[in-house]
């Protein structure tokens, strides 16, 4: 009996020792993970704004904004009105037209939305603009870029394994570099396809809620589909998004289920034209 107790005691002791060893290891791992986590994430909206500014900075380093305040304010009015119908109406929504002939639009965390002059120029109505801005607003409200950029930034930091470096004075600049690099990766590689399809559904719904003809986004996708796929103006868009035909098929399926809610709505084509021609004065 005594021997058995002693054996049991030994086993328990061993178990405790093993457990404590594991605990030490886990603590170390947890500590490293926490410092990585602190480095790139989770201080709420303030952090989101910071990541967004870094991402917007990357885009503004690649293309200038159109220097026409009337045009920029018009796009901001339409965009903010659409964003008021989203899950996050209170964000400091900021829209900008990039002076670029390519066809594209981008979102950055925290409420930044960019559209190229090349895409704007191929639109026919304010409803089309509302649908595209609604798609980008969807990326922001669902935090698609925020999650993807943080993940990339973590990978980059973990790659160098800079747990120590992160606590040094270089902490902030390392973090900014990792976030900017993460943004570059996401803007050139694209989000998950599922994120794009989700943003399409949100874009249609937000445009409809804001009183626009909800078929504006599908109309833009049809325009994209009709352009030569090899056109250099579509290169980055094509590399980062599902094909327009698949996006149209998914939207058609989703919208057909509730067609009744999508009747009516304003196209705003006259106003869109007027806003554009006003620029000639």
């Amino acid at each position: 009996m005594k021997a058995i107790v002693s054996l049991r005691f030994s086993i328990m002791l061993l178990a405790v020792l093993l457990a404590s060893c594991q605990t030490i290891d886990l603590n170390q791992i947890t500590s490293v993970t926490a410092s990585l986590g602190d480095a790139v994430s989770l201080k709420g909206e303030e952090e989101e704004q910071e990541v967004g500014a870094q991402a917007a900075n990357v885009l503004l380093g690649a293309a200038e904004v159109v220097e026409d305040e009337d045009l920029q304010r018009y796009v901001n009015r339409v965009g903010h009105w659409v964003a008021l119908h989203s899950d996050r109406p209170e964000l400091p929504w900021t829209f900008a037209v990039l002076n670029d002939g390519d066809i594209n639009a981008f979102a950055a965390p925290g409420g930044y939305v960019f559209i190229t002059a090349g895409l704007l120029a191929r639109m026919r109505s304010e409803a089309e603009l509302a649908g595209v801005l609604g798609h980008e607003i969807g990326h922001v409200t669902e935090k698609h870029h925020l999650k993807a950029i943080r993940k990339e930034a973590r990978l980059k930091i973990a790659g160098v394994l800079a747990a120590a470096a992160l606590e040094s004075e270089g902490h902030d600049s390392d973090r900014y570099v990792a976030l900017a690099d993460g943004a570059k990766t996401i803007y050139t590689r694209g989000l998950d396809r599922g994120d794009e399809y989700e943003a399409d559904r949100i874009g249609v719904v937000l445009a409809a809620r804001a009183g626009y003809d909800p078929y504006g986004l599908p109309a833009v996708l049809q325009t994209l589909d009709s352009l030569n796929a090899d056109s250099s103006a579509l290169a980055l868009m094509t590399a980062t998004h599902p094909a327009p035909q698949s996006r149209l098929e998914k939207l058609d399926k989703a919208m057909s289920a509730q067609t009744g809610q999508f009747a009516g709505g304003k196209s705003g084509s006259k106003r869109f034209r007027a806003e554009m021609t006003r620029l000639t004065r």
Binding site: R77, W81, A83, H85, R201, V204, G211, Q258, K266
Partner: peptide
Amino acid sequence: EARSFAASHGLESHPVDELED
């Protein structure tokens, strides 16, 4: 400003359900 832009152009909010995947 966004609301007055919408009002001056006859844009009205409508309840629309989210689209299912």
